[in-house]
Simulated scan of single mutants.
Amino acid sequence: MRLAIAQINLTALADNLAQVRKFAPKSKVMAVLKANAYGHGLVKIAQHLNDADAFAVARIDEALALRAGGLTKPIVLLEGFFHQDDLPILLANNFQTIIHDENQLKALEEASLDEPISCWLKINTGMHRLGIAPAQLNDFYQRLQATSNAKDTINLMTHFSCADDLQDPKTAAQIALFDSLVQGKQQAHCLSNSAGIIAWPAGHGEWVRPGLMMYGVSPMLNATGKEHGLKPVMRLTTKVIAIRDVDAQQCVGYGGRWQSTKATKLAVVAMGYGDGYPRHAKQGTPVVIGSKRYPIAGSVSMDMISVDIGENTAGIKVGDEVEMWGPKLPVEEVAQCATTIPYELLCNITPRVSYEYLE
């Protein structure tokens, strides 16, 4: 009997990509596949995103894995390259690179390449992580146009810091700053991540780069994907492996964090932080058995979690399936219970979990 399983709904994936195009009908789509496609399986997910115009990853090894998997679409390296020796690899595999600092630009200018590389120039408009300062734009832009190692079309990019919060004025300010900087530069522009796609149409540009929303999860504060017409792609499940009687006033699990107030039954499920489930999920975090929610009781351990199923177990038995998150229980809700974000939960799935891809 297989225990922890991540079921990946590829039909939902395609539907979510279609929903992206509804939000941004005039933009091309750069599907973001970094961090193992947000924990969903890098190559398999890419193979089922035929309608995407390009892929984006964080690092070269992710891009190479896509090429090894037979993917031929354009691939953009969101962190760019890290050493001049990387440039022949980019050229040989037709990777596009972000340029976000002086070291990268100098390495590109000084390289000896047989052909030019496609470049995206990233501007820091308020994220203050990667990107050139606004005052550097014209210098970097002219130097990229001048070097024979960069293709003539220099695309322009930025990244939003607070687009998930409609009340925060920073996103509107970032859009305004970007628009003022790129006036007269007619190349393609890319500003919007998932939150920008959903909430800030003024920032869509010629390209958008959906990440979290493609996997059916809301990037917005205090929202679920369903509110945006998205469908969860991952359904994380396991099995009940034991059912135990617990008397009133008995403590359960490491540290005795939970104590029964009355006689009850506990279902022990084969899931824990060894599978990627959040260690700090609070007491009462729900799971779904059958069609009903039941609360976690006690600490999440490495391999097991206890669930209070009450005295009336409604026929729950060893071997029954337990949904940890999925269509019946949004991962956004579980993340709130663990004081984290859905991104972390999806990306933290460990190799012990089996993957099952559903067409």
Rank of each mutant, 00 (worst) to 15 (best):
A37Q: 02
A37L: 08
E115L: 14
K34S: 14
I98E: 01
Q96N: 09
E62N: 08
A68W: 10
N93V: 04
I89W: 10
V57N: 00
E79D: 15
L66W: 02
A63Y: 04
A52S: 07
I98A: 03
A58H: 08
I89N: 06
Q104F: 06
T72L: 13
A56Q: 06
A65E: 15
A58P: 08
P116Y: 05
I45R: 03
N103R: 12
E110M: 14
A56E: 02
I117P: 00
F81T: 03
V43F: 03
Y38I: 11
H48I: 11
L87V: 09
A92E: 15
Q104A: 12
H100G: 05
L66T: 01
A111L: 14
P74C: 07
I117C: 01
L71T: 05
A58I: 15
H48R: 10
D85F: 05
A58S: 14
K106G: 03
L77D: 02
I99A: 05
A111S: 15
T97R: 03
E79A: 12
G41A: 08
D61F: 09
Q84V: 04
A107E: 14
E62C: 06
L105G: 00
L42G: 00
A68P: 07
L77F: 13
E102A: 14
N94W: 00
K73I: 05
G41E: 12
I75Y: 01
G70Q: 10
N94H: 11
L90A: 03
K73C: 11
A65W: 08
L87R: 00
H40K: 11
A52K: 00
Q104Y: 08
A107L: 10
K73E: 07
I75K: 01
L78P: 03
A63L: 11
N93H: 13
H100M: 15
H83F: 05
K34R: 15
N50F: 06
A54E: 14
L64F: 13
H48F: 08
A92C: 11
A111P: 06
L87S: 00
Q84G: 11
Y38D: 04
S112G: 09
I60L: 09
V57F: 04
A54D: 10
E110P: 06
A46Y: 02
Q104E: 12
E110A: 10
A52L: 03
A56R: 01
A56C: 13
D85M: 05
A111E: 08
L77K: 04
Y38N: 14
F81Q: 02
A92T: 12
L42F: 08
Q96R: 10
F82C: 09
L42Q: 00
T72C: 06
E110C: 03
D86C: 05
L91K: 01
D85P: 03
F82A: 08
D86K: 04
F81W: 06
I117F: 01
N93W: 02
S112Q: 12
A35T: 14
E62H: 07
N103C: 09
I98Y: 15
L77A: 05
D114C: 05
P88G: 04
T97Q: 05
E110S: 06
T97M: 11
A56G: 12
A58E: 11
